[in-house]
Design a protein around this nucleic acid. Structure first.
Lengths: 115, 115
DNA sequence: TTAATATATAGCTATATGCTTATATGTTAA
DNA sequence: TTAACATATAAGCATATAGCTATATATTAA
């Protein structure tokens, strides 16, 4: 398979973004399931604004997309991005985030108030 | 093919390192040929200490190795590293640095004084 | 040994980054 | 409309980073 290439500038930009443990883990989680901010809050030891800022950076580059559903905004990987193939290949080299997914599903923040 | 995975911390560290245009280009060049500092000086618009510092970071993480040959120290990709597979996969997504290789070969800094 | 060349290290500075708290915006339900 | 909840934005701060210049170290050749 012939991969379409990404200019070095753009590739460096996305690698720098993924070169943060929090964001790399977010992307790994999003590869398995979409998440909203309050779900990420369950697995990262940081404030809600920090989570939002990481997601914003990923969104600004087109790595993730968002979709509002009622009160929540769901984030997912943007498979339409020219960066998607690179990101998929990178994710093959890191462990699947099973523990964090479990944590999210056990806490179920979006179901707390019976919505 | 089953890829061995790299812990998220370590993966984030190498992605951050490669998330710099200079270092990413260096690694792309080293995929094609080994180089010494004075050769990199031909293609990057920065001082010799800056080049050396970038190479040191790559060496500290095990991405590149060095080999002294006389006056020169040749840098090459470390194919023994656990990071090598990831790096190869990333490089498939960026253009081959043909122009820079040409620049290096046309200038031939290590041959200037007839060594 | 001395001079020339190649590379590394030290120390400095400007900018970028990631976090925080405080506050604003948007949505739902009473 | 008001309260509660989810998320975003603003502003500030501490640390990290990438570049620079000056200098040290290592090698070669005279």
């Amino acid at each position: 398979m012939l991969k379409s290439t990404i200019y070095v500038d753009r590739a460096a930009t996305v690698l720098k973004l993924l070169g943060d443990k929090t964001r790399l883990t977010m992307v790994a989680i999003l590869k398995q399931r979409e998440c909203c901010v309050c779900e990420f809050l369950e697995v990262f030891d940081m404030s809600q604004p920090s989570i939002s800022q990481h997601l914003r950076k990923l969104k600004d580059l087109g790595v993730v997309k968002e979709e509002r559903r009622g009160q929540w905004i769901y984030y997912s990987l943007n498979s339409q991005s020219d960066l998607y193939g690179l990101i998929e290949d990178i994710l093959e080299h890191i462990p699947v985030q099973t523990e964090k997914i479990k944590q999210i599903e056990n806490s179920n923040p979006t179901l707390r108030c019976g919505c």
